[in-house]
């Protein structure tokens, strides 16, 4: 018993002060919003308040997930991210118009998840970079061809590898963040990971709030994301860049690097969201699943992160090589 407590204290002490501060802030914010939404729901019970509570509960799940990924031994985080990636892959494949003869190729996609995350876990960069983009991209069309049915084979050959790219390859970069090394920077992957997740999440919120405050004047993509306006997008980007400077203590970046990364994450977040919306409109569905109530499926929540992660990773990899 005492040994277990000792172990927990050691684990607690191993978390850097900056990370503790961020999680303290996040959990305090969540407790505050939970109380506010609970009171709101008790006094004026309607659709909006129950939706807000659902969303808030989903944010709790996300925050706890990120807490585990960031502070527990890295293997737990890798398993969690791999599982989320697997579920996203399944969600995306489930809503796609596929053929009965694609089943074996789909099965191989699922098998690729543990391999890709193993490569990310051990940090074997070359294998990690080419496993899906080269090896799986060759194997899948061959398997499809061997299945014998040629009707619609071109469509399957493009849909399945793209889904694998978006739902497995891109999120797996998150675990590669832990293998980057900077001079005089001790927070390591945890700080870098928190930075991108916080910025992408807040970018969503900023764009939403600014869009609502400015009213629906000039829409960016009226046919795809009707609630996003030019004003909301630009002010959202500026706010995200501002936040990027504010939480720079999590990273080794300079002032200008933080602005660049904040802007890039904001732009990627917007396009990630718009891309998924376009796909969903084509398939005539609202949400891709219902794992996180109020947010739809995993993919509905990850949409703004998915493109941002690999681009963020490669920019900071470049920065790491400079230093």
């Amino acid at each position: 018993m005492t040994r277990r407590i000792e172990k927990m204290i050691r684990w607690y002490n191993s978390i850097p002060e900056e990370i503790k501060l961020v999680f303290l802030f996040v959990f305090a914010l969540l407790i505050l919003t939970s109380i506010i939404f609970y009171i709101l729901d008790k006094t004026i019970h309607n659709h909006l308040t129950s939706d807000l509570i659902k969303r808030n509960n989903s944010w709790w799940k996300i925050a706890i997930g990120v807490f585990i990924i960031g502070t527990f031994p890295r293997i737990y985080g890798t398993i969690i991210v791999a599982f989320i990636s697997f579920s996203t892959l399944r969600e995306m494949l489930s809503i796609s118009p596929l053929r009965a003869s694609d089943r074996l190729a789909i099965f191989l996609c699922y098998l690729a998840v543990p391999i890709q995350f193993h490569l990310a876990y051990v940090g074997f960069y070359n294998g990690f970079i080419i496993f899906i983009t080269l090896i799986m991209f060759i194997i899948i069309p061959i398997i499809l061809m061997l299945s014998g049915s040629t009707k619609g084979i071109g469509r399957s050959m493009s849909i399945i590898p793209s889904i694998l790219l978006v739902t497995v390859y891109m999120p797996s970069h998150l675990m590669m963040l832990f293998h980057l090394e900077f001079k005089d920077f001790l927070l390591g992957g945890t700080g870098l990971l928190l930075y991108v997740i916080i910025l992408a999440s807040f970018n969503d919120i900023f764009q939403y709030i600014w869009g609502k405050l400015l009213g629906n004047k000039k829409k960016m993509l009226p046919k795809i994301v009707p609630d996003r306006t030019y004003g909301g997008f630009l002010l959202g980007l500026i706010s995200t860049a501002g936040l990027a400077i504010l939480i720079r203590f999590l990273t080794p970046f300079t002032f200008w690097q933080a602005i660049l990364l904040g802007t890039v994450i904001g732009i990627c977040g917007f396009f990630g969201d718009a891309l998924l919306q376009a796909i969903k409109r084509d398939l005539k569905i609202r949400d891709t699943g219902s794992v996180l109530p109020g947010h739809g499926g995993f993919l509905d929540r990850l949409d703004s992160l998915i493109i941002a992660i690999p681009i963020y990773y490669h920019i900071i990899r470049y920065i790491a090589n400079l230093s």
Binding site: R99, S101, S149, G152, I285
Partner: peptide
């Protein structure tokens, strides 16, 4: 809208 989950688009 769940028809899509019932069967594959085609063989």
């Amino acid at each position: 809208d769940e028809r899509r989950y019932d069967k594959f688009a085609f063989n």
